[in-house]
Write a protein that binds this DNA or RNA. Structure first.
Lengths: 141, 141
DNA sequence: TGTATCGTAACTTTTTTTGTGACGGTATTG
DNA sequence: CAATACCGTCACAAAAAAAGTTACGATACA
């Protein structure tokens, strides 16, 4: 998992915390502590996955695309595509080494399985859960 | 998972493929396609975990520290420590945003759980398995 | 028509990862 | 005992990846 995933969850939880309102990328950026463009970039992936929707122009902004109880962290990870995945070493192995030539393909199987395990784990968390727990910690409930 | 993990598995599988022999970091580097120092760095972590052992000086080199059937990929990942883990976004959230202030700690729980899932998955693979599968693909068996 | 917003491209900066050179230490070999 | 072939590790360089910034066009609202 990487920092893009973390940021995405942060954003979605923030949106869930202000239902009915549209929030600007500038506001989100201030909450996360970064630049609005960085946020918009992230939101772009989330929008493709249907998790958020945006409206341009004055009065525009961002809102969740669906019920936060129906957004799992699995979906979030999925929306980030290859960026969130396990990575292979990218060296060119020696052409005559049978191990070097073939470990990669076996490793791919390993990663695929591990990835499924991660997804099963993330599947159990929703944005609504995240918000609930955040609020419990903050004592805002 | 990252490229250090992949490289570590590559190295261990290579060592498993030449039982009884010591292999030099230079040889391993050639197989992986990188610099010997990079390999030694990686081997250092693996040695701390007892997965390999080395002998300096002439005639020296590296060998597995135990039966390849007793080395799981979980151990390999564990030996890499924090490097192999999921990472949080490192921005400073806005001090007055209750979401920003607390998502991290909830995310830590999420990551911990996901990490355990990965470990359970990796636990099922041993270096001996890797070698067997590599050989099957290579048709060297 | 002015303004607040998104969308996105190009670029810069920072951070992380990987690679390299250098050199000391040590056991083995002859 | 000296030459050698290794490891161990530090400091630095280069490359790659990620994050941040600037800029500007497009659009709807007021």
């Amino acid at each position: 998992m990487n920092s893009r995933f973390s940021t995405a969850v942060h954003i979605l939880t923030l949106l869930a915390s202000t239902p009915g309102e549209r929030v600007t990328s500038e506001y989100i950026a201030a909450s996360v502590g970064t630049n609005p463009v960085v946020i918009r970039r992230q939101l772009a992936s989330l929008r493709e996955a249907g998790l958020v929707e945006s409206k341009g122009a004055r009065g525009g902004g961002w809102a969740l695309g669906r019920d936060p109880a129906k957004i799992t962290l699995k979906m979030v990870r999925h929306s980030l595509g290859a960026d969130a995945k396990f990575r292979m070493h990218r060296n060119d192995p020696h052409p005559e080494c049978p191990v070097g030539q073939n470990v990669r393909s076996v490793l791919e199987d390993v990663y695929e399985e591990a990835d499924r395990a991660v997804m099963r784990s993330l599947e159990q968390w929703t944005i609504a859960d995240m918000l609930k727990r955040v609020r419990r910690i903050a004592g805002t409930e």
